[in-house]
């Protein structure tokens, strides 16, 4: 059996990839995808803990995370579309009407 630490390290690496993506990428959609990677990294460690602790809370939690992520996608893409209609860009550097 693969030990728990492997899963945790995998999840931490995945999470870091997501964080880096959010910080580096400038396309709103890609940034959003990186946020989803972060959430899925969390799901990996939730399931791993769940299995390791031999419980069900973690699995239930991960289902909730998936539901919320789906709801977030619908809201997020709607916002991006609303912005694109007015400005015809999804580049975060060009979305800068308000500063300081």
């Amino acid at each position: 059996m693969v030990p728990l630490t492997h899963y945790l390290i995998f999840s931490a690496v995945l999470f870091s990839i997501g964080v880096l993506g959010v910080l580096i990428r400038r396309n709103a959609i890609v940034v959003f995808m990186c946020v989803e990677i972060m959430l899925n990294a969390v799901n990996v460690s939730l399931i791993a803990f769940d299995r390791y602790l031999n419980q069900h809370d973690g699995q239930i939690f991960s289902f909730m995370v998936m539901c919320v992520a789906a709801a977030e996608v619908s809201v997020g893409l709607a916002i991006v579309i609303a912005l694109f209609r007015n400005k015809a860009t999804v580049n975060l550097d060009e979305i800068n009407l308000m500063k300081w």
């Binding site: 999470f15 997501g18 946020v35 916002i79 400005k87 800068n96 009407l97």
Partner: peptide
């Protein structure tokens, strides 16, 4: 456009923070 921008900024950063919160809870 300002309203759109506010929503997008709030949304992206909010979702980003949710990731951290969730990882902390996990």
């Amino acid at each position: 456009t300002r309203s759109n921008e506010a929503a997008l900024k709030y949304f992206l950063l909010g979702a980003f923070a949710t990731g951290f919160l969730l990882y902390g809870m996990t």
